[in-house]
Nucleic acid binder design. Sequence first.
DNA 1: AATTTTAATGTAAGATGTACACTTATTAAG
DNA 2: CTTAATAAGTGTACATCTTACATTAAAATT
Lengths: 243, 243
Amino acid sequence: MPAQPDYSPVNTLNHPDIAEYFSFGISVDCVVFGYDGKDVKVLLIERGTDPYLGYQAIPGDLVHPHEDAVTATQRVLRDLTGLKDVYLEQLQTFASVNRHPLGRVATIAYYSLLKIGDYNPRPSSWATAAQWTPIQDLGDMAFDHKEIFNAALERLQTKVRQKPIGFELLPEEFTLADLQHLYETLLNTEFDKANFRKKILAMDLLIALDKTQKAVRHRPARLYRFDPARYDALSKRGFHFEL
Amino acid sequence: MPAQPDYSPVNTLNHPDIAEYFSFGISVDCVVFGYDGKDVKVLLIERGTDPYLGYQAIPGDLVHPHEDAVTATQRVLRDLTGLKDVYLEQLQTFASVNRHPLGRVATIAYYSLLKIGDYNPRPSSWATAAQWTPIQDLGDMAFDHKEIFNAALERLQTKVRQKPIGFELLPEEFTLADLQHLYETLLNTEFDKANFRKKILAMDLLIALDKTQKAVRHRPARLYRFDPARYDALSKRGFHFEL
DNA sequence: AATTTTAATGTAAGATGTACACTTATTAAG
DNA sequence: CTTAATAAGTGTACATCTTACATTAAAATT
């Protein structure tokens, strides 16, 4: 049993039975976003046991007693997809008393962005734990997971306009039309094509490749690659990504 | 002992001794910001016991077993300052394995903004638990509280440029110069006076009062009041506060 | 060779931002 | 009572960015 921590100025510390305060479970839940060129999708599992049997749920797990929260999240994602070191961002902690029917569990929610091609669940194989689900057709979800998802989407929509993280959802090489369509889908907006590309190219974050699209029945578009090093350099000089 | 929660697809759920997973303490810590017309300050307590005896610390407490995190934070702030329903925003959860020397405690960090006149610690009275400290001269802090403070400040600096929350730090009635100086202090910038006031007034968020400053040895400035209702109305029509 | 489709560029008008000069209202000093 | 000092508050010209939309270019299909 851990000794009592002292958090002045309040007096929990002097409570006769400090052990009661060390009875929480902590979990991590991770909203994983992907983009297939058409829809924004999220990686969900279908629950196989009660409570919420058959409901869709955000992947997660209890944090082990000697494990960091980020480590736990990366573990969950690795077990689920085989991927390591994915883009991860802490979202918010959900700690309502009754959020979990089986005990007092606070969950630290994260969201993750990954290139959808990096994880292909084989639809008919045995342990197809997780499936990509378009974010328009989410059904009811287990626990407070719908609330967590909504918070994650809202955060992503804000963040994607202020930091160059949209590229995490695209393949390494993409066209400006791909990029524009991603933003339009994610933000439910339309951009003027000419103005969008001017704005993006003016930022000087993309490397124009000497390659074009193949197998397309019209003029093929040039491919680009995002340059994180250039972004870092510009950031240090006060550059601020916007929209 | 709580029953085992089921978080597919991972197998913690089948662990033989699920009780080990329900041994966490959860605390809340709240970085309280104030502004006295000159400096941005933060409300800190001086620890009276080990560990970190004598160090400055962010006020906080363990969350009670049947208490929500926000409720716990409001409780801490009420016990400390007597204030209820202060502006509160969840910041981030800190959950490193070794962040607390006396046990496994994850802390949900919040930050709060309050009008500095609403809490006046009497410097020489008995239980002057907390003191306003200018953010420039913070010493070493207990636990990982310096890290928490830094995250809070950074978040505040971002947020204050995107949402009209600066007003939480000012008295109900203020001059445009007050507002400008607050932003300049908070963001370490200087604004052009004419352009700053044009920008702010163009947003149509302030109510111009038929009052002016008193007891000032130059032309007295007009007083204004922030109108939250007008902000809500504009927000619904797509208005976005910026800088 | 003409048609279709999307890529890619150009431009003019409007809106917004920036720098800086100017006028105004009050108190204090002579 | 006049002048100086101080900060409030306004006006303006110029630069920059945004927006809307027209035009040209390169490929595949008919």
